[in-house]
């Protein structure tokens, strides 16, 4: 084990996979200087400019060329810089990457990882703060991952690189500096599709992912002081999601709250809530609740930006209302 930041753990994952498999390469803007968040630091020096490729500002072609390069037998790690800029490459992601295997009758695979740094970060306003993971869960053909811990950022990124499906890989911009124990082994893999039990509790199951796992943990401390036990499931992968772990937890707690930073309306919390309602509504003893952002673009001014944030206090008051019912 070593203590690494989320950013270093991701960097290590890419480096190990590039050493292991000569077909793996990374492309995107400013990668030669280590990437805008330092998540490719040192890789140019080790692997050279052909495998750590600095691209023009050409998101549609960064994505489209990656689809082509994947069809041709390589395994691209695609850097979108900010999730917001991936919107410039939507056709390439949704119509091409996600569908090539199926449309072509299984002749081809599109093994690529599409890294999308997401979320609110330092007054970045409406075009640099979005959490759009739910969009991608709606697209057949895509895997959607959103790790929270540094260890998961290593183990899941490695799994994503080895995965033969296109993986939307969401890293939270506020997490880069987060430190944690990370296994040193270069075969440390965290399977996609498996959630993580982040905290045990008897009274309520809180399902969340990405940065909100940390916020939920703070809320759980506050709740514990009031004698309320919150069980936190870090979903880690949104599609496919670990229904077994969520259902098993709910057998025990019988109360569900889903929390996400993204806009609540049409968010992935709705899918989880509906699925749970369909399968085990009769076993629950409190109404299912979701907690997400208001359906508002993210403001620049700090107090207005803060208004849209999910805080431990907001989670706690929702939990208390559920326990009270």
């Amino acid at each position: 084990m070593s203590v690494l930041s989320y950013q270093e753990a991701g960097c290590q994952a890419v480096a190990e996979e590039m050493r292991r498999d000569g077909r793996v390469w990374a492309l995107g803007e400013d990668l030669g200087r280590g990437g805008v968040f330092g998540q490719y630091k040192g890789l140019l020096e080790e692997f050279g400019p052909e495998r750590i490729a600095d691209t023009p500002i050409s998101e549609a072609t960064i994505m489209g060329a990656s689809v082509g390069a994947a069809l041709a037998g390589t395994r691209p790690v695609v850097e979108m810089r900010f999730a917001d800029f991936a919107l410039c490459a939507m056709d390439e992601m949704v119509n091409q990457a996600a569908k090539a295997r199926f449309m072509f009758g299984g002749q081809a695979r599109v093994p690529l990882v599409i890294r999308q740094p997401s979320g609110m970060w330092r007054s970045s306003a409406a075009q640099h703060s979005q959490s759009l993971e739910a969009w991608y869960t709606h697209i057949p053909g895509l895997v959607v991952a959103a790790p929270y811990t540094p260890a998961d950022n290593k183990g899941m990124l490695k799994s994503a690189i080895r995965c033969d499906d296109p993986v939307i890989y969401i890293e939270h911009k506020d997490n880069w500096a987060l430190e944690g124990e990370v296994p040193d082994e270069d075969d440390y893999l965290v399977p996609l599709g498996a959630a993580r039990l982040a905290r045990e509790g008897k009274d309520l199951t809180l399902v969340t992912w990405s940065k909100m796992v940390g916020v939920a943990a703070q809320a759980a401390e506050l709740a514990a002081a009031q004698g309320i036990g919150i069980e936190i499931i870090d979903l880690r992968t949104l599609w496919p999601w670990d229904q077994d772990m969520v259902f098993a937890s709910l057998e025990k707690t019988k109360r569900l709250l889903v929390v996400h930073e993204a806009v609540q309306v049409g968010g992935f919390g709705a899918e989880i809530a509906a699925t749970v309602a369909e399968h085990m509504a009769h076993e629950l003893i409190a109404p299912i609740r979701r907690l997400g952002a208001p359906r508002a673009p993210i403001s620049y001014a700090k107090p207005l930006e803060d208004l849209l944030r999910i805080t431990p206090e907001k989670i706690l008051s929702t939990v208390v209302s559920q326990i009270g019912t």
Partner: peptide
């Protein structure tokens, strides 16, 4: 009182 009421910032 900002050009965009403080909702956009420098880039908007």
């Amino acid at each position: 009182g900002g050009t965009c009421g403080g909702k956009g910032g420098s880039m908007h």
